[in-house]
């Protein structure tokens, strides 16, 4: 796979070469940042860390129409997904989350919507040179320049971007850009490695997950679950905005005679999530729901797919209104083991 250089002055030319594909990049105010289609001539905001809304929205939209129909009719119209898009500036942890969630969405049978979006997308990553306050990707198998899930990785070298192709899709992008790019040399690769190491060294949060997946089931009745969930409001932020959370609800929406069946993000932190119609709820309080969230990510998913379903992006820590902190919970788990 090739490595090329893009002079920052040539950024508009590079973007132009991607014509035909919709370009999504981080946009909006810092606090509201999410991936959205870039309008022509606009420079994407790449300098911030993680977007508030993870790019999972591009493969697993918050609301997705599964099919449309007319009440009383029999025809089911499945939306045609055909728009090719490039996601620019994806953080390595978020790209890794897609590689992790692929396991679930391909378990025995493929989720057609998710994989259609995946197929149409090219993921262009951006090496993290300034990790966020609550990043802990290096604890869970990732890193500031992790390539897993990405097609192409960009690294900011000051005046230039280093572009490394990872997959055929990434290679194709470099080819399409043609003479806008120059060949990269060992020097730039070395510089990238230096920046990556520096960034990794600047990651302040960490937890060693060894022993957690096997140990969690034994802590089922441990008082720690009461402790760590006591202040939880059940708002669902930690799961809605978690890049590896994939749970959804399915609902029919009717307007007049037109209707659609759609799926929407759901959260295991909500009471209704598991409640039976009879009113019986197998997870009646936040203690059980928090316990499930942590077990799901750090034990069940490992049992099923051999990988931790958390990429250490820090969103749940940054955004929880009552400062519930997954690294802190994991530390308490380790202590209780």
């Amino acid at each position: 796979m090739s490595a090329m250089l893009l002079n920052k002055e040539k950024w508009p030319d590079f973007v132009e070469k991607l014509a035909g594909k919709t370009i999504w990049a981080p946009q909006g105010e810092e606090a509201e940042m999410r991936f959205a289609p870039v309008t022509e001539g606009e420079a994407p905001a790449l300098e911030y860390g993680n977007t508030r809304v993870p790019p999972k929205q591009a493969v697993f939209p918050q609301t997705e129409t599964m099919f449309r129909f007319q009440l009383g009719g029999e025809e089911l119209e499945i939306p045609k997904l055909e728009e090719e898009a490039v996601l620019l500036g994806v953080r390595p942890c978020d790209a890794r989350s897609m590689a992790i969630v692929d396991n679930l969405f391909s378990w025995d049978e493929n989720d057609p919507y998710y994989f259609k979006h995946r197929e149409l997308l090219t993921l262009v990553g951006l090496t993290c040179t300034e990790p966020g306050l609550n990043c802990f990707c290096t604890s869970v198998g990732g890193g500031p320049a992790s390539k897993e899930g990405l097609d192409l990785l960009m690294t900011d070298l000051g005046d230039q971007y280093l572009l490394e192709a990872i997959t055929e899709k990434g290679e194709a992008l470099l080819k399409a850009a043609g003479e806008v790019l120059e060949d990269a040399g060992d020097e730039q690769i070395k510089e990238k490695e230096r920046l990556t190491e520096e960034a990794a060294a600047n990651i302040k949060r960490n937890v060693n997950p060894d022993g957690i997946p096997e140990g969690l089931p034994g802590l089922w009745e441990d008082p720690l679950w009461q402790r760590v969930s006591a202040s939880c409001l059940g708002c669902g932020t930690c799961t809605y905005l978690c890049p590896t959370c994939h749970c959804f609800d399915i609902q029919d929406e009717v307007e007049g005679f037109s209707a659609r069946r759609c799926r929407t993000w759901d959260s295991c932190m909500f009471n209704e999530y598991t409640m039976h119609t009879s009113g019986h709820n197998p997870r009646p309080s936040r203690r059980e729901r928090t316990r499930n969230r942590i077990n799901h990510k750090y034990s069940y998913y490992v049992d099923k797919f051999d990988v931790i379903a958390c990429v250490g992006c820090g969103r749940c820590i940054n955004l929880c209104p009552v400062n519930i902190d997954i690294v802190d919970i994991l530390r308490q788990v380790k202590e209780a083991l």
């Binding site: 378990w107 994939h246 039976h276 069940y300």
Partner: peptide, 24 residues
């Protein structure tokens, strides 16, 4: 077992009892 279900095919996540998906 009978847990609340939406997808039936191990994707929507809601039917788990511990590490088992009741639907699968």
């Amino acid at each position: 077992l009978e847990n609340r279900m939406k997808c039936g095919i191990g994707k929507c996540g809601r039917c788990n009892a511990g590490n088992m998906y009741v639907c699968k």
